[in-house]
Computed example of a mutant assay.
Amino acid sequence: MTEKQQPLTVGRVAQLVGVSVRTLHHWDSIALVRPSARSWSDYRLYDAEDIARIHRVLVYREIGLPLAEIARILDDPEVDPREHLHRQRSLLAERIGRLQKAARAVDEMIERTTPMNDTPSSAGPISGDPRTPAEDRSITLSPQEQSRIFGTDWDPAWQDEARERWGDTEQWQQSVQRTRGFTAADWTRVAEETAALETDLAEAMNRGVEPGSEEANALAERHRASISQHYDCTASMHVVLGRMYTEDERFTAHYDRRSEGLAAWLREVIEAAARAHGVDPETAGWE
């Protein structure tokens, strides 16, 4: 009997589908994906139908649905597997369309940007807000054009606000330099990675991951690393950004759209991780 026909252990399935064993154990515990059998030594064994369900979960998670909603959809007795595939295909097409629109927007921004020192320039979000591409003085689009390109959530005032607050910092200059050569594909990659990170943060919060735990600290470091693509973000700076997630309603709304309470939970996670680095969140500053 081939591996394709044989039930697979949790470790082999984890390798096959690209998720951790811990994730599969969690999905089993919440009845999202339960293995169809157990070995004589009580190891989980997954058959072809189980693995097909895992792939459906992965697609829905990639789209951004919370696990509870995914479980409800997959367990709907009125929907057969083929209908699930059609639904996923439709949702993926919508996401691809949004990403293509975002890529075209960045392409247009590149084309409409006046070179500075003979080199096109754009800067990443100094604030850590993935929705707010900070800009260099070389962008020549009007506020109305920027709103048209980036959509109704785009507020041109964010650019001036970010520059006024951070423009004289070393981190701002780092951001300008590091993203100067970014292509539309680079910005699309950043957007996809940010969405995946926020989905994982929401999933961890919803299953009760405690700030300060090993998993929460790992997520905090992953969040800090995403910001460090643009500038060197220390643990102390990370705390300052975390404060904004609950003190600025725009940041709160952004994270809480993923899952209610995510902004406050993320701040706690960041502060707990900072303590592990010897940083006191009460006195942390931009340093």
Rank of each mutant, 00 (worst) to 15 (best):
I70R: 03
R165N: 06
T283L: 04
V21G: 07
H86P: 04
P130H: 07
A184R: 13
D118K: 08
W154I: 08
C233E: 06
D232P: 02
I270R: 01
R178W: 13
I110G: 00
M1D: 04
A52D: 11
T252D: 01
D155H: 14
A204S: 08
R22K: 14
T234Q: 02
W40L: 14
P115I: 03
S228Q: 09
L197V: 06
T113I: 01
Q15N: 12
Y255E: 05
R112Y: 04
H223P: 13
R267G: 04
R72A: 11
V21S: 10
A253S: 14
W40S: 15
A253C: 14
E214K: 15
I270T: 14
D155N: 15
G124P: 05
E282S: 00
I51S: 05
V240T: 10
L262I: 07
Q171M: 03
A196R: 12
Q5M: 10
V269G: 06
T183E: 09
T169G: 09
D47N: 12
V269F: 02
I30H: 04
V79I: 11
Q6P: 01
V10W: 04
L99P: 06
N117Y: 14
P66Q: 02
D28A: 11
I270D: 06
D107E: 10
C233Q: 05
Y43E: 05
E111L: 01
L91M: 10
V239H: 02
R22Y: 05
Q174E: 11
W40A: 14
V190A: 13
N117A: 15
I30L: 05
P77M: 05
I96Y: 15
R189F: 08
N217H: 15
V106I: 09
A37H: 15
I54C: 14
R34Q: 14
V106T: 10
S138K: 05
